[in-house]
């Protein structure tokens, strides 16, 4: 009980944010990213490529149609979302944990006019940027395969940004209570991988057993996929706004959590 109180201490206070300094934190992360982005992007993008080949062109041959789409048309847009999800999630778990842990980068920043809230907000924005960037790179690949059918696809960054921001938030919450690197294994096995497999990337959620069919609705990935798929095929509907609203609401309702929890972890 004492422990929980410490975890959420100050959650009702208004965050102490200075946006110019938040951007300095983002800039710092971009500067480091610039040094490794080539190796990084390759690595992060080979995996969805493999899925596209294996599932789309391999398995897809045996699948006639899903929701009126060929299997590869069904799969490719969702892989844009999932590759963005993975890159953000890796960055905001292993990456952030390293920066706040043995590198002590956060501790260095807050000895200046930068506040801990600025630091964590900077992390969230950087995680968001990275996810969107990787999503866009994969979108371009998908387009090169001729799988983009509509200029509506240009709006893909909107659902992507909202979705990866919610993954930034979720990941940082986990990172703030993670005792060590190994514990991120649980995060990926229990949360991220099930989303990847069951939130509508590989097959429609209607195919899930009736008892758990409602579950994907609670995940950001599901709502992002629900928007990105019609965007790529130019089949947008008003109902897509509800998915965007869900994602926006998720971010607004949860963003205070990592600010508080990371601060309470580091500042004693």
């Amino acid at each position: 009980m004492v422990k929980r109180k410490q975890l959420f201490n100050g959650i009702t206070a208004i965050p102490d944010l200075s946006w110019p300094l938040v951007m300095k934190v983002v800039y710092r992360n971009l500067l480091v990213f610039k040094k490794t982005w080539k190796a990084n992007i390759m690595f992060n993008f080979i995996e969805p490529m493999l899925y596209l080949w294996a599932m789309g062109f391999g398995l897809g041959v045996y699948v006639s149609q899903i929701e009126g789409l060929s299997y590869i048309d069904f799969l490719a847009p969702a892989l844009i979302a999932s590759s963005a999800m993975f890159s953000t999630t890796y960055e905001m778990t292993y990456g952030s944990f390293t920066r706040m842990g043995h590198q002590k980068v956060f501790q260095g920043m807050v000895a200046t006019p930068v506040s801990m809230d600025d630091v964590v907000m900077g992390e969230i924005l950087y995680g968001t940027f990275k996810g969107v960037l990787y999503g866009i790179v994969f979108l371009i690949v998908v387009a090169l395969f001729g799988l983009v059918k509509s200029p509506w696809a240009l709006l893909t960054p909107v659902p992507l940004a909202l979705m990866v921001m919610s993954f930034s938030v979720m990941s940082l919450v986990w990172t703030s209570i993670a005792p060590n690197y190994d514990s991120f294994g649980y995060f990926f096995t229990l949360l991220i991988s099930p989303m990847f497999l069951f939130a509508g990337v590989f097959f429609p959620v209607d195919n899930l057993p009736a008892g758990i069919r409602f579950l994907p609705w609670f995940t950001p990935l599901y709502h992002a996929v629900e928007v990105i798929r019609p965007l790529l095929h130019g089949k947008v509907a008003w109902s897509n706004l509800a998915d965007l609203g869900w994602l926006a609401a998720f971010v607004v309702l949860t963003i205070r959590l990592p600010l508080t929890m990371v601060k309470n972890r580091l500042i004693q």
């Binding site: 110019p20 300094l21 300095k24 800039y27 710092r28 500067l31 260095g108 920043m109 200046t112 006019p113 930068v114």
Partner: peptide, 8 residues
């Protein structure tokens, strides 16, 4: 340079 940025 990055640190100087934190002091704007």
């Amino acid at each position: 340079l990055v640190y100087a940025g934190y002091f704007r």
